[in-house]
Nucleic acid binder design. Structure first.
Length: 250
DNA sequence: AGCCAGGCTACCG
DNA sequence: CGGTAGCATGGC
């Protein structure tokens, strides 16, 4: 997995996925994209911004990514959208607004995303982190040093594990870290590139080594797009072999 | 009718 | 360390 030949195969597989699926424009930031649409008159749904890498542009957008990253834990994105809609309808779109509610009240709003008792507690915990950390982080250099400073402290927040942390750092703050999730493991395994049980940190450093780029900005763009096309590919794989059909052949 | 979904915590040996 | 139960809704 870590030798030069495997790194090359990972890079080739990613290049193929990138050209096959095309620009993705992750992470979807619905509120900001809506504002952008009105300004330009473009019609683009669901907040994705393919080919543009300067999102999110606002505190509200960064917080929406944090919220979505927590809500999507082991949960279909369609259910997360329902919960985000409910938060918007209730005007609970800032960390301060979530902390102003009691946990049960917040849980009632995010109910469609499932695990709502846990997730309302997680959201309140990460709201505290966000209010304390976002001002400096938004202005910090998008460097490995910034990443290594903030990542352990984000991981210390209740409800934030490695995938949630890396999604926030990569997509809300454009920091150079690679997101490993169930999709990543499935796609790598399908290409015979990694054992899906490989520990998180090991997979992350391996993917980062395989998909290195000359500059920090290019690295972040590649890693943002890579995770997005891995998700597309994994969903395509699922459509071709739905659960229950001959996954286990012989 | 089940099985599954972009995890994480707590607890066990 | 590796393994597992519990958490919950909506789609197929």
């Amino acid at each position: 997995m870590l030798d030069a030949r495997h790194r090359r195969r990972v890079r080739q597989a990613l290049a193929s996925l990138l050209s096959h699926h095309g620009p993705q424009g992750w992470w979807p930031v619905r509120t900001e994209r809506a504002r952008f649409e009105t300004q330009t008159g473009e019609r683009q749904t669901r907040g994705y911004h393919p080919g543009e890498f300067d999102f999110p542009r606002t505190r509200e957008g960064r917080w929406e990514i944090v919220t979505g990253a927590v809500l999507t834990q082991n949960t279909a994105w369609s259910n997360v959208e329902r919960a985000l809609d409910a938060l918007g309808a209730a005007r609970v779109t800032a960390p301060e607004a979530m902390l102003a509610l009691d946990p049960a009240g917040l849980g009632a709003i995010v109910r469609p995303a499932g695990y709502f008792n846990q997730k309302s507690r997680y959201l309140r915990a990460v709201a505290e982190w966000f209010m304390a950390s976002d001002p400096a982080l938004a202005a910090a250099p998008r460097s490995r040093a910034t990443l290594e400073d903030v990542r352990p402290r984000l991981l210390a927040v209740r409800g934030v594990g490695p995938e949630t942390a890396d999604s926030v750092l990569l997509y809300a703050y454009s920091l150079p870290t690679f997101v490993i999730d169930a999709y990543t493991r499935r796609v790598l395994a399908a290409h015979g590139l990694a054992d899906p049980t490989t520990p998180y940190e090991e997979l992350r450093t391996a993917c980062e080594a395989a998909l290195d780029e000359p500059t920090a900005a290019e690295r972040v763009r590649l890693w943002q797009e890579s995770h997005a096309v891995i998700v597309e590919e994994a969903k395509a794989m699922r459509r071709e072999t739905p659960a229950g059909t001959a996954r286990r052949r012989r």
